[in-house]
Design a protein around this nucleic acid. Structure first.
Lengths: 251, 251
DNA sequence: TAGTGGTCTAGACCACTCC
DNA sequence: GAGTGGTCTAGACCACTAT
């Protein structure tokens, strides 16, 4: 019975359109409509747009549907939402893009190449400046430094150095990291909750150039990554890629 | 009355816990629980996990709540979902990171610097190889090439070249682009639906080095961006940043 | 055809924050 | 205190796809 009523309501709806309001039943269509109103400047940057309740009435759909559409737009940075205040068109044209950060093993295998990995260095050491800041430790706290290299079909693909904080982690043995990249070992040991990346271009330092098989000073793409478990940073990695390498991203 | 019943149900729920099942009322707690089961290998990579219906019963919440949690996890690449098949733990450890791509004006102003912009070149031209591929045009179709430079406190910050396809766009005048960066003009003219980025490290070419005020061959961070309106690529841009520049990203 | 995820709805309560 | 977004729920239908 309720099912029948649901059906009835659904089929009747298109004919209930009145007052020139479009019926937008899906969250995608609501999102499209909102985007169009922003593009056309009907809602200008910095301006408040109607509340979810008002929009759901205007567009003839449930508030949850409007909420879904607006949430997606807020996640892409197109609008900004605050309780009690309302929803504003973002004044900046900032957009957010999504980057795939695959494990390097997958990256290499996706190219159709044969993956291999080798541990270059494993030792306790006082932190570098960058590692100190990233892991929030003192200069006299010893950390574990791991350097490794990834090869695709025997050719250098990427080299990395990782600092691990033994205060906040189980301590790996050298033997373990000879088999398994530190990132993969890390992910199997602790529940990583959050990461921060920085992407930059650098000139290859002498050891980095040697590991990658390029000339010193060659432009390399560098990714710095800090992993967190809740409020504690547990690892800081720097990865260097050969110049041909591209990070691709969708928006 | 219904309100009271709702209240009652809510307050009673915690005491209805039975069979050792935890009550996970929020989508965040469902997500945390799923992540924990994945980390602990209770659900191994590549394996199917229970259906939404089963999970909602196990965890004592609505299917929509489970759906929300699993949708978020699928968006971050932790799990993979297919209708009729079910939900699998992703076998790759790939993660997705979110990059802020602000308008360069905002980027510069966020540094507390004074923004300025200057148009360096505006002309019709046959496409370059890269532009041809990106905009899906023939070698003999003329495009508009725009080169420009952004300054922070009078110092070069970024330079860019943009190819526009006049077949699929209104055509800007030189005067317009002397005032307004091509990206901002573009966004005000057409509803951009989708973008693709590539991020790479390059050695500065001679003109690029000159625009950025660095030595030729210096490593520069390069962002290539193609903008789409539905299925049509309308612009292809290459931006070059000085070596200090970092793209930062959260996961 | 049947099973699974994807979505919509109406109603309700909660959480935050401005006044 | 009141207004707004954030979320949960129960039920329903739709869309896709393996079989």
């Amino acid at each position: 019975m309720t099912k029948l009523l649901g059906n009835l309501a659904r089929t009747l709806r298109p004919s209930r359109i009145s007052g020139g309001n479009k019926r937008m039943n899906t969250w995608q269509s609501v999102r499209a409509e909102v985007l169009e109103r922003i593009r056309s400047r009907e809602w200008a940057p910095g301006e408040l747009i109607p509340t979810e309740e008002q929009l759901s009435q205007q567009l003839g759909c449930a508030r949850a549907t409007v909420n879904r559409a607006l949430r997606e737009l807020a996640e892409s940075g197109i609008i900004e939402r605050r309780r009690k205040v309302g929803t504003r068109v973002a004044s900046t044209a900032a957009r957010k893009a999504t980057l795939e950060m695959p494990a390097i093993r997958d990256e290499i295998e996706a190219m159709g190449a044969t993956y291999s990995y080798s541990l270059m260095l494993f030792e306790e050491r006082m932190p570098s400046e960058k590692a100190m800041r990233a892991l929030q430790v003192d200069a006299n706290e010893k950390l574990i430094l791991v350097k490794a290299r990834y090869l695709a079909d025997g050719q250098p693909h990427c080299c990395e150095s990782i600092w691990l904080n033994p205060q906040s982690l189980p301590v790996p043995t050298r033997a373990v990291l000879e088999k398994l990249p530190a990132h993969e070992w890390l992910a199997s040991q602790v529940p990583l909750t959050h990461g921060r990346y920085a992407i930059l271009a650098e000139a290859a330092s002498e050891p980095c150039a040697e590991h990658l098989g390029v000339a010193e000073g060659t432009p390399v793409l560098s990714i710095e990554r800090t992993n967190w478990v809740d409020a504690t940073p547990v690892s800081f990695a720097r990865q260097f890629y050969r110049p041909q390498h591209r990070l691709v991203s969708e928006e």
